[in-house]
Design a protein around this nucleic acid. Structure first.
Lengths: 120, 120, 120, 120
DNA sequence: GTGGTCTAGACCACA
DNA sequence: GTGGTCTAGACCACA
């Protein structure tokens, strides 16, 4: 469920974080569902528990999970998270548009390119 | 001309590299124009020469400048570089589209968003 | 295992790079095997860690090793690397042929010379 | 007659040296023919006279030219030089064979490759 | 412990 | 003067 790629240049904790964000956003992990304990996931993935701990701390800070002491970590409702993530995507898109414009690629060209992908 | 932000999470050498890439691509530094010497730029930016050295080595490896030993570093013709950079942008756009799709944002929505920016 | 020759005109980092390329290509360092840490190798060879760091960065960029942050550097599978290296050799051979031809040494003579070595 | 490529990674003095070696070996500069003075060539190529001086010193050290004080520099007879250069080529070929063998490319394969080029 | 980045400063090759 | 390599040593992110 959580694929780790050691050859990936991104740190492991970030890969774990990203993966959980996707699972929660897409509803594969449902609202208020319990996610694996730090210790269990560390064993499953053969990864240092500190790394999982850090990933979970990151998820909590970004509002994707909440912790109940003595119980475990639970997913936040995707309905509340989607607008935030959508905003992240749009910010990324805006930055890309600006970089494109700097070297003379117009917004029209970007739109054309996306439409081309859509039709294929 | 080369703004450095020590608070930026990206390493300094990368900020320098990115900045020069832009200056060359946009034609602000012209083809075969000399860029500042390692030492001069280091003094100007109050940065260690080694860091500038690394940035320039990166620029050369990526094909943005060429080095003439004992003379200095010179910009490559932007005409040769633009297609490569364009491809980079389009790859970034493709990744963004895929991330968007994963959580149910369609290509149409992305196109709408870009058009909205275009008209404002 | 990594012989360094300070009298060699090639820089140290390049000697280290070349040596590891050979060890990996010949299977002496096996796929996914850990290579020495930057610090350990630096101490072993009485060389500055920065120089080893540079050699390893080069190896990664050329695709011979991959880095797992906090864990170390690991060899890529030689099976994936051999075709690329083979191509390098053949390119070198082609250049040599051309240089030979310029002063009137024919390809036949080169072949004869190689056959002579083969039979001795 | 002496093409200089500033983008070439080899130093300029080496490009000049190599070029003269070829011109002499191929008989384009004949035995005992005068080659341009340091000053004239420097002006012709828009290059620092020190660089030409160094190239000529190299050529003399390697036995390709001889200097007559107050007269200039003169080419040595190609007949005397060819065997030496031939030896250089063969040494290069031997090194290449050894590198090839280290990763399991046989001499037969190298011969095949050369024959292929010969027939095309 | 492990790699990545950076500063400070030296020496060399090249022009 | 200009870039290339190297030493010495610091601090940070990551596991």
């Amino acid at each position: 469920m959580i694929p780790i790629d050691l050859m990936d240049s991104r740190p492991i904790y970030e890969q774990v974080t990203e993966r959980f964000k996707m699972l929660i956003l897409r509803g594969i992990i449902k609202a208020d569902e319990k996610i694996p304990s730090v210790r269990n996931l560390a064993v499953d993935l053969s990864i240092n528990p500190n790394t999982i701990q850090r990933a979970y701390a990151e998820l909590e800070k970004q509002g994707y999970i909440y912790t109940v002491k003595g119980k475990g970590n639970f997913a936040v409702d995707a309905k509340k998270l989607l607008p935030v993530y959508r905003e992240e995507i749009m910010t990324g898109l805006k930055e890309l548009c600006e970089r494109a414009e700097e070297i003379g690629i117009t917004k029209e060209e970007l739109i054309c390119q996306i439409e081309e992908w859509r039709n294929s």
